[in-house]
Design a protein around this nucleic acid. Structure first.
Length: 212
DNA sequence: AAAACGGGGGC
DNA sequence: GCCCCAGTTTT
């Protein structure tokens, strides 16, 4: 059975129309700067969206730009973003990122994969989200949800997220690239969960080879 | 009490 | 590839 991805995504879009993926939903046209999207995504790694949201609302109330973050002490910064996972490491990374952006990029977030990957705490997931959501570029943000679901439904057969990204770039129609992360995060947190997925209330179970 | 959750980096 | 990094939520 080969899933019809256009139909699959179409059904999901209808069913998750009102669902808001907190961090994946951040975008310039929703009042976020690219730098805020970058910071939110760095903080969201290995932590739940709800926790990230609380952390960034506290942080952004005090500092919204690289220069403002650099004015905070590292302990103060760590206190503001607590309790995201690895908050001490991330506080250090945030200062380094801010310093690099100020010193090497004229205060603006770089818009290429190469430059983004040089920022500490930024990997492919974060870089691709910034490129897609922040700069409106054609990039696919493969997080654990996109990776898991793409494999579970048999659309790709890959071991690492990077392999998934390459497979999706080949197979997935480009019109779905920007939206796939937000859509699959919502679907993956509520229905297609890692453990004990709620197949009983899944709108696409009839198309799914993993349907239990 | 234990396992599950979600990326990046160093080796 | 393997293993480490910290905290909250779910079982």
């Amino acid at each position: 059975m080969v899933v019809n991805i256009d139909l699959f995504i179409d059904i999901l879009e209808k069913n998750f129309k009102s669902w808001k993926a907190p961090v994946a939903d951040f975008a310039p046209d929703r009042g976020r700067t690219v730098f805020e999207i970058l910071v939110s995504t760095v903080l969201s790694s290995r932590t739940k969206d709800e926790v990230t949201i609380k952390a960034v609302s506290r942080l952004f109330a005090v500092a919204r730009t690289p220069l403002e973050i650099l004015e905070l002490g590292e302990d103060e910064l760590a206190g503001l973003i607590y309790p995201v996972g690895f908050y001490r490491i991330k506080a250090g990374n945030l200062r380094k990122i801010s310093r690099i952006i100020v010193r090497e990029h004229g205060g603006r977030v770089p818009d290429t994969m190469d430059e983004l990957l040089r920022l500490p705490g930024v990997g492919r997931k974060t870089a691709n989200l910034v490129l897609a959501q922040g700069f409106g570029k054609n990039a696919i943000c493969v997080d654990t949800h996109v990776h898991r679901i793409s494999n579970r439904i048999g659309y790709v057969s890959t071991k690492t997220p990077e392999q998934t990204e390459r497979a999706l770039i080949k197979k997935l129609p480009i019109k779905h690239w920007a939206g796939i992360n937000k859509l699959f995060v919502g679907f993956g947190q509520t229905i297609c969960r890692p453990i004990s997925p709620r197949c009983g209330s899944c709108p696409v179970s009839s198309m799914c080879p993993a349907f239990i």
